[in-house]
Amino acid sequence: MTENVVTPAAVATPAAEDRLSTEAIVRVLEDAVAADRPRRDLRLTDSISQDIRLDSLALLEVLTRVEEAFDIELIDAPEIYSAATVEDLVAVVRARAAQAATTSTAERP
């Protein structure tokens, strides 16, 4: 009889598709926004400046937390500053994460 063994890494590391799902990215954004203000559920249509009320400094702090969560670079990405809604941010995070995955795969021997 064979036994299925689940390693802690397998449990802790979701599939790339799950990790980059819209819901997963929005959860990370919610956590990042809630670090210094009351927690709220974000909607994809929420405006970054009007609904969430992130000024430029608060946005940089949120982006730094998102960078750490996904191991990507956002602050130097020009497209991040044209993002107006949560949906726009999700798209940039997903694109940057895909780009990072492609780059790391290409660098492997």
Rank of each mutant, 00 (worst) to 15 (best):
E107M: 08
R40F: 08
V62D: 00
Q99S: 12
D51P: 07
E67N: 06
V62K: 00
V11G: 11
A9E: 14
I52W: 02
A10Q: 14
A95V: 00
V26D: 01
L44V: 11
E107A: 15
V33W: 04
A91H: 07
V5C: 10
D55I: 02
L42Q: 03
R65Y: 06
A24D: 04
D76Q: 14
A95D: 04
T103G: 06
R65K: 14
L57V: 13
R96A: 13
L89K: 00
E68H: 12
E17Q: 11
D51S: 15
T105R: 13
D18Y: 03
E61L: 10
I75C: 10
E3I: 12
R96K: 15
V86E: 02
F70A: 09
E61I: 04
L29G: 00
D88I: 01
A15D: 14
E67T: 05
E79W: 04
A35W: 14
S21K: 06
E17V: 15
S49R: 15
I80N: 06
S104C: 05
V62L: 00
A58C: 07
D71M: 08
A98Y: 09
D36A: 13
S82R: 10
A16Y: 08
E23H: 13
R96Q: 12
L74Q: 04
T102A: 12
E79H: 07
V90D: 01
E73G: 13
R40M: 11
A35R: 12
E23W: 05
D71W: 00
A83G: 04
A84P: 01
T103Q: 15
I75R: 15
A32H: 01
V66E: 00
T105Q: 14
R96Y: 04
R53G: 02
L63D: 05
R37V: 07
P14T: 12
R37C: 08
V90R: 01
A91C: 10
A97W: 01
L60Y: 05
A98H: 11
D71P: 01
D71S: 12
R40K: 12
R27F: 04
D55M: 05
A69G: 06
A83L: 06
A12W: 08
R94D: 05
E73Y: 11
I80F: 06
L60T: 07
E107V: 09
S49K: 05
V62G: 00
I25P: 00
S82N: 09
A84C: 09
R96S: 03
L44I: 09
A106V: 05
V33T: 01
A100K: 06
A83D: 03
D36M: 11
P14A: 08
V26G: 03
T64E: 07
T45S: 15
D71C: 02
A101F: 00
V33Y: 02
Y81F: 14
D41Q: 15
V92C: 05
A58M: 06
D36Q: 14
A12G: 09
A24S: 14
E73T: 13
E23Y: 10
E107W: 08
S56A: 14
R37F: 08
A95G: 00
I52N: 03
D46S: 05
F70K: 02
E67I: 04
V66Q: 05
V92E: 00
T85S: 07
A35M: 14
E3F: 04
V5P: 09
A77F: 03
S82Y: 10
D88L: 04
T85E: 03
V93Y: 01
R27S: 13
